[in-house]
């Protein structure tokens, strides 16, 4: 009698693995997708430590300082403009002049050395985002930057995946607001009826013929 190739339990193993292996593969894929979307990977909502504990909540919400006081090129350049040390010192040469928290700012100003902040919104080098056109066409600060007026330490409000960009580029009426509300951090986009937002898209001459979803709109 020849030796048995398969044991008595071989059929059971086969049946169990028929179910277990697809489940395992599916689980691995689901876990990878979950990781990809999680704040651990996207850094959305995760505040980073900074050399100076700058609080947007204090400056925006309590002092009511306009976004443009510090981000002064947002209306005319691709970058919103990271404030120079001189901008900080415009006020902090007068107020909080002896605060140890602000020692790095004073050092930077006296020694002409840059303050190295940790970048929060870091787009890939192949994305050519332009702040000025978005601000000019009715996209407000909080649409992408979230409730910045509540952030003691600044965190990314969006994972910045391309699908999120495309959502707006396919249907701009969802997130558009009147031009005079761009820098109003308390403005709620949904407070304007959809029909009026669609009218804004027409008024602001935002192309809806598909140009906004061309690859070269953002990638060059």
């Amino acid at each position: 009698m020849s030796a048995q190739i398969f044991s008595r339990t071989a059929n059971a193993y086969l049946r169990v693995s028929l179910i277990a292996i697809p489940l395992l593969l599916g689980g691995i894929i689901a876990a990878l997708i979950g990781l990809y979307l999680s704040p651990w990977y996207t850094e959305a909502g995760v505040a980073k430590a900074q050399p100076i504990a700058f609080s947007h909540a204090h400056h925006v919400s309590q002092l009511k300082i306009d976004c443009r006081y510090c981000h002064n090129t947002v209306e005319r350049a691709a970058t919103a403009g990271f404030p120079a040390t001189e901008t900080c010192m415009s006020c902090h040469s007068q107020v909080w002049t002896t605060s140890p928290l602000l020692q790095p700012v004073r050092d930077s100003y006296q020694n002409n050395t840059p303050i190295i902040w940790n970048r929060i919104y870091d787009l890939p080098a192949f994305v050519y985002f332009n702040h000025s056109i978005h601000v000019a066409k009715g996209v407000g600060c909080t649409t992408c930057h979230g409730q910045i007026q509540t952030m003691a330490l600044t965190a990314k409000a969006q994972p910045l995946y391309m699908g999120w960009c495309l959502g707006c580029h396919r249907d701009p009426a969802q997130n558009i607001r009147p031009r005079d509300q761009i820098f109003n951090v308390d403005y709620d986009v949904q407070s304007l009826p959809l029909a009026e937002r669609q009218q804004l898209v027409v008024d602001y001459k935002i192309p809806t013929d598909g140009r906004l979803t061309n690859c070269y709109t953002c990638h060059r």
């Binding site: 691709a78 970058t79 990271f82 840059p114 190295i116 970048r119 890939p124 080098a125 192949f126």
Partner: peptide
């Protein structure tokens, strides 16, 4: 190397 290309963007170190 596509994400971090050998070029400078504003405010980069």
């Amino acid at each position: 190397d596509m994400y971090d290309q050998a070029k400078y963007k504003p405010n980069q170190p």
